[in-house]
Simulated assay, not measured.
Amino acid sequence: MTQSEFRRVYQADPEGVWAAPGRVNLIGEHTDYNDGFVMPFALPHTTTAAVSRRTDGLLRLHSSNAPAPVAELRIADLEPGTADGWTGYPAGVLWALRGAGHHITGADIHYDSTVPVGAGLSSSAALEVVTALALSDLYELGLQRWQLARLCQRAENVFVGAPTGIMDQTASACCQPGHALYLDTRDLSQRQIPFDLAAEGLRLLVVDTRVKHAHSDGAYGERRRGCEEAAAALGVVALRDIPHDELDAALGRLADDGLRRLVRHIVTENHRVEQVVERLEAGDTRAIGPVLTAGHASLRDDFRISCAELDLAVETALSSGALGARMTGGGFGGSAIALVEDAATDKVTEAITGAFAAENHLAPRVFTAVPGAGARRID
């Protein structure tokens, strides 16, 4: 499909096809821009890109998911604010690559994607990473996966203007099938933690509430600025530097209740990531359920980024038998996750669907998340 669409649009064969996945974050929300710990895994849902090089300084972009004429950009003119909508993400990647000193003379790209947009599953990171990997391969840049992630983050932060951390891009670039990625976002050290739920009679359900959000909206940036303000007030580089056993003392040094709430979430969330890693490595997967649920309460009450639909999904999942549940992603909409016994899958799914109908919400999309592969060349 991607190759044939490339031929239709550009009247030529692509030089190759690449894929990069969306992600689910198992635990570790908003900790990445605080130099903390996260634990995402890749979804089987991917963005694919058929790509060929150009030599005339043009970047031409087309997507099956956003029917429109081919967008044509001169790469010499790329600066923040010069590309609108979805095209800003791949344009930003090329801008970031060139800004890092890599010689790229243009490209024709056609995209197709199965990653739900606006669902908190990192559709933007998948778009960025597949572009970066394809250009790195075609132009023989020799970039490592963590370097691609850093450049993609710069594209999103500076070119697009969304103040995201490094988790999404690293997950899309680096995750492995059957594993969750335990990532230290300060130095990008990582461990692949086995996460084979099916072998244990478990499933992780994703509930896409279909409430759309954008990370570039002001509320996300406000949380990030508040965390930075709190870190400065506490005399640390980042909130990651507050040990969990020193949290109460740190909170006592802050007069602003809003900052106290932000600090409490980040410090306890880092601790929750470590708890999940310990329980998974000990083979006690079911015991991560209460940790996930505690994470949702923290995001709802301290970080205050949940919404009625997310809370309903979590509360209904728990009341119908889920072992644990929480919102996942940046918040203000998007998706929730629920850890369930395999035998309870239908019951939990039907309960959530019924609860949304009773509240006159849009019907949620519920599916099972299976840890997939990170970015790769597929043709």
Rank of each mutant, 00 (worst) to 15 (best):
A250E: 02
A313M: 10
V291A: 02
A282Q: 14
E281W: 00
A249H: 04
T293K: 13
T285N: 02
R304K: 07
A250H: 10
L280S: 07
T285R: 05
A308P: 11
L312P: 08
L262T: 10
R253E: 15
E274G: 00
V237P: 03
D302V: 12
A250F: 13
D245Y: 03
D311Q: 04
G295R: 05
R261L: 10
E278N: 00
A250L: 03
L254Y: 05
G289M: 10
H296W: 14
R272T: 06
H271P: 05
H265I: 01
E281F: 00
F303R: 03
A313D: 02
L280C: 13
R261N: 06
R261F: 01
V276N: 06
S306N: 10
D257M: 09
H265L: 10
F303T: 00
V314H: 03
S298D: 06
V237H: 14
V267C: 08
I305Y: 08
L262Q: 13
G289P: 11
V276I: 02
T268C: 11
R300K: 15
R253T: 10
D311K: 12
R261P: 09
D248G: 14
P290Q: 11
G295P: 12
A308N: 12
T293S: 15
P290C: 13
A255M: 06
R279A: 01
L262F: 12
R272A: 01
D284I: 08
E281R: 09
V236T: 15
D302M: 13
I266E: 03
T268F: 00
D248R: 15
L312M: 08
L262S: 09
D241T: 15
V273K: 06
S306D: 07
D248C: 15
A250T: 05
D284R: 09
N270M: 11
S306Y: 04
C307Y: 11
D311T: 05
R240P: 03
A255S: 15
V236Q: 14
L292M: 14
D241K: 13
R261G: 02
V236S: 14
R304A: 14
A282R: 09
C307P: 12
L292K: 12
P290V: 05
L239E: 13
R279I: 01
T293F: 05
A238T: 13
A255K: 15
G252M: 07
L254Q: 10
D302H: 15
V237A: 15
A297P: 07
R279V: 00
D301P: 01
A313E: 05
E278L: 04
A255P: 07
R261C: 09
V267S: 03
G283S: 03
D241H: 14
V263T: 11
G295S: 15
V291W: 06
E269H: 12
I288L: 11
D241V: 08
V277I: 08
I288F: 03
V273R: 09
D311P: 07
R286C: 05
L292T: 04
G283C: 01
A313V: 11
N270S: 14
E281A: 04
D257Q: 08
I242Q: 04
L254N: 09
H296Y: 10
D256P: 14
D245E: 06
P243L: 08
R253I: 08
R304H: 06
I266S: 07
S298R: 00
L292S: 02
R260I: 09
I305S: 08
V314P: 06
L254T: 01
A287M: 03
E269S: 05
A250P: 02
